[in-house]
Computed example of a mutant assay.
Amino acid sequence: MYRGFKKMPHVQYIYTESSESLCGVKLEVNKYQYLITGRVYEGKVYTGLCNLIEKWDKLTLPQRKGLNHRYHQGCSCKIKPCYYLPCFITSKSECLWTDLLSNFGTPGYQSKNYVCVKQKEGYCSWSRGWTPQDRSVINTTDP
């Protein structure tokens, strides 16, 4: 499954650096399915250690459903990372991401179970992965 057909209608290769010391990634091709994020530059798709790369079966159910059904609802929202307290949002289009406070930069409970989406009132907030959007809105400073 591939997203981004408008920008790249055909992808034959995904490029990365040759070693991890140069931020390259090693994938076990034809053994696992992966979620791979990256960028398109001069007609080629690139990925590396700074991009999100995860085995599909290691994603939580809310993450998989979010990728297929919910994350696009947050395209106009910005996720603002919180590295240390105090943290604040500065506009109604931001969701405060607090996983970095307790997980040392690794995805934590918030990123595994919530999605930042625009609400009916026009502001962005965290919503539990697959439950109907209006029922599970949480405060932007929660998890």
Rank of each mutant, 00 (worst) to 15 (best):
M1S: 11
Y2E: 07
R3T: 10
K6L: 02
K6I: 08
K6F: 02
K6C: 00
V11M: 12
Y13C: 04
I14W: 01
Y15I: 07
T16A: 12
T16C: 10
S21K: 14
C23N: 15
G24F: 05
K26P: 00
K26N: 14
L27A: 03
L27V: 10
E28G: 01
N30F: 09
Q33L: 03
Q33K: 11
Y34T: 03
I36A: 11
G38W: 04
G38A: 04
G38V: 02
V40E: 09
Y41V: 08
E42A: 04
E42V: 12
K44N: 10
V45Y: 13
Y46H: 13
T47M: 07
W56S: 03
L59R: 09
L59I: 00
T60P: 00
L61R: 11
L61M: 06
K65Y: 15
L67M: 09
N68V: 01
N68C: 06
N68G: 10
R70D: 05
H72D: 05
G74N: 06
G74W: 04
S76Q: 12
C77R: 04
K78Y: 05
K80A: 02
Y83C: 01
P86S: 11
F88S: 14
I89P: 00
S91N: 13
S93F: 12
W97Q: 14
L101I: 11
G105V: 08
T106N: 14
P107Y: 07
G108T: 07
Y109I: 07
S111W: 03
K112E: 11
Y123I: 01
Y123D: 08
S125V: 06
W126D: 02
S127K: 11
R128Q: 12
R128D: 08
W130S: 10
T131R: 12
T131H: 15
P132F: 08
R135P: 00
V137T: 14
